[in-house]
Amino acid sequence: MNFYAISLPILIVLHLIEGVALVWLLVLRYKLGREDNAPLRDAMSRLYRYAVDGVLPAPPRTTRRRWLMAEALFSLTRHLSLLSVDERRQLGHRCSLIYHLLKDAEHSDGVAQSEALQLLSVIPLDDKSVERLARTVPAEPMGQLYRMLILIVYSPDRVTEIIDSDGLHLSGYLVPRLVARLEECRVVLPVRSLLATGALLPSLVALRVVARYELGDYWEEVFEALQSPHREVRMAAIKTLAVLGVTIDRRVVEATAAMSVAERREVLRIFLREGYSAMALQPLSDAEASIGSPLAEYAVCRTLSRKRTLVKTL
């Protein structure tokens, strides 16, 4: 009697717990099985309706929904010229996107901080928000890139100062990305003043712009960049000169003389890749021959090898 009186309630409670756990598992399975993109698609659809019909979306109540709306705004802005600056500013304030993304950028680090800054980069900021952002120093290069982008878009006339002042060291992959994003934001980059600073990042950005648009007017400035104390700038200047198709003269030879063998080989490869013939590379080959370097025959060998490959293909 005592045994049943004690064990029955325990059994009932255990069965109840089991039942609740089963229901919870079923709900979880339904949520996981559901299409992941549905909420993002819904947010994009609401923003599109706002742009087309002027129906302002309701402010998101949860962090997740706010984040989705920021992602939707970022995606739509990157793909479609749909929402004007004023509309994006209004959305940013009404849905508290600016406040919360700035808070995320200030209090998180690493990838989360970079993502918050990336999403923030399509929302026009006011003076106070820019001041708050200027005080944030992201650790991740990607976060630094987006912070710089936001500051430049806020005051495009200070572009040289902003790129120069941060003292950043962006990798070879991030410089083209910064230039491409600035181009998407319709920011005009002053190439001459960027190169005149002589600093690492401004010079790399300016050389990237010259190479990207093959701006032949700036070849004198690019030649001057060969004297830069930064190795990356010198290599970027050589790449840019190769893209511009300039004749190899004394200045290029002198700039390459101080480089290591691997770097000199890279220089020859760059010029060959841009279609320079062995004859056009003769000044570099002569300089290699004068120091008895095995690279003296490099250009001739590569050109012959390419010709053989072409003959075989044809």
Binding site: N37, L40, R41, M44, S45, Y48, E71, A72, S75, L76, H79, L80
Partner: peptide, 12 residues
């Protein structure tokens, strides 16, 4: 390759 690009163009 981007789902958001597909969604943006579908809306248009």
């Amino acid at each position: 390759s981007s789902l958001t690009a597909i969604e943006s163009l579908s809306l248009v």
